[in-house]
Amino acid sequence: VKVFRALYTFEPRTPDELYFEEGDIIYITDMSDTNWWKGTSKGRTGLIPSNYVAEQ
């Protein structure tokens, strides 16, 4: 598990995607895809765009 911080707010387009706000901490559990990672924030899990976060 790696810890990342959201650089921007992300509004999901599908139920599989995770909503998060700029500054949120996201725990990444799967980075197997280059563009979409699986992450958890505020008790919810979903896909996030990798270019919206920076490693802490």
Rank of each mutant, 00 (worst) to 15 (best):
V1H: 12
V1F: 14
K2Q: 10
V3C: 12
V3L: 12
F4V: 12
F4I: 01
R5E: 07
R5N: 05
R5Q: 10
A6R: 01
A6K: 01
A6I: 03
L7M: 10
Y8H: 11
T9G: 08
T9N: 11
F10L: 05
E11A: 11
P12V: 05
P12Y: 05
P12T: 05
P12R: 05
T14H: 14
T14R: 13
T14C: 13
T14G: 13
P15V: 13
D16N: 12
D16Y: 13
D16S: 11
E17W: 06
E17A: 07
L18Q: 00
L18F: 03
Y19G: 15
Y19P: 13
Y19R: 13
Y19S: 13
E21W: 04
E21R: 09
G23E: 03
G23H: 05
D24E: 08
D24Y: 05
I25V: 10
I25C: 09
I26D: 00
I26T: 07
I26L: 13
Y27C: 12
Y27R: 05
I28P: 00
I28E: 00
T29M: 10
D30I: 04
M31N: 07
M31W: 11
S32F: 08
S32H: 09
S32T: 14
D33M: 07
T34H: 13
T34G: 12
N35P: 07
N35F: 15
N35Y: 15
W36R: 04
W36T: 05
W36S: 02
W37V: 02
W37M: 03
K38A: 08
K38E: 09
K38G: 05
T40C: 15
T40M: 13
T40N: 11
S41F: 11
S41K: 05
S41R: 15
G43I: 02
G43S: 05
G43P: 01
G43M: 04
R44W: 06
T45K: 08
T45P: 07
G46T: 01
G46D: 01
L47E: 02
L47A: 05
L47I: 10
I48D: 01
I48K: 01
S50Q: 06
S50L: 03
S50H: 07
N51K: 11
N51H: 14
N51G: 12
A54I: 15
E55L: 13
Q56P: 09
Q56W: 15
Q56E: 14
